[in-house]
Amino acid sequence: MNVLDLVRRSRKLKLFLFIGIPLLYLFIFFFIPFLIALLYSLGMFKQVVYQYIFVPRVSLDYYAGLFKYPGILKLIQRSFYYAVLTTLGTFILSYPIAYYIGVKLDRRYRDTAVLIIFTPFWINFLLRVYGMRFILHEAGLVNTFLRLLGFVSEPIKFLGTDLAVIIVMIYSYMIFMVLPLYGVLEKLDVELLEAAATLGATPLKTFLRVTLPLSIPGILAGSLLVFIPALGEFVIPELVGGPNTATLGTIIYSLFLRVRGVTGWGIGSAAALIYITMIVVASYIYMRFVGGEVVLG
């Protein structure tokens, strides 16, 4: 009897082969690191020369360290502010596009339209953000445009401000909102809209009573896909922001970069765990608020 026969006979072996191996990988290199980082942030690992040893006592020193960080509360508040505005901004800008492509545009051209939306997002994210620096610069396109139209006489200084960060975040995260919205709107049965019209609903009422409620799953998915990473964004504030645009992500990044070593990573882990907690809480409240019924039912 060879090994293959052994595998063929045993359901458990098969399950281990198919499910177990990949799952084991994820546990070792994804979930256990989480646990370790949690314990680490609670001061449960101590460095002894070149080794770390486990000590069974909990200390909140790293969390205290994090909250002693200058302006930390302001920073968390700002992260929220950016994430919420980015989510709202991408939603408002994306919905008409998703609606046009998913409902109005001839079925034959939809794939191409999605491809056209998608293509810029295949180009390195950092380069696109860097490109926005040219556009938002004092001598850049936006300012030139505003001056030509006579809106401003002095160029506006965008770079380094909240506005620049939010504009670039909306630009970068658009795709994560457009696609889920397109996903639900494309599947929207046009007969439902026609049915509403035959029942006397005006186009506006049809939109409010039928189209919008039926896009809730897409709105939920899109907002979470934007909100979660936006809350921890550090690349965009670094590249187009300035000293006053630091976020939660910026702390993790700069602790990693500048305070490499035990303390920095300890506080960084604490920040990361607070970040995750915020995501879970915010998502939960949001889902309850916007329409858990649709998702659950």
């Binding site: 007969e191 026609e194 049915a195 019209a197 006397g200 039928v210 649709v294």
Partner: peptide
């Protein structure tokens, strides 16, 4: 326009509002 015609329609897919 349809919504001002006072007609009723039963669609092939029925088009009942799922929500």
């Amino acid at each position: 326009p349809t919504h001002k015609r006072n007609i009723g329609m039963v669609f092939q897919t029925l088009a009942l509002f799922p929500h």
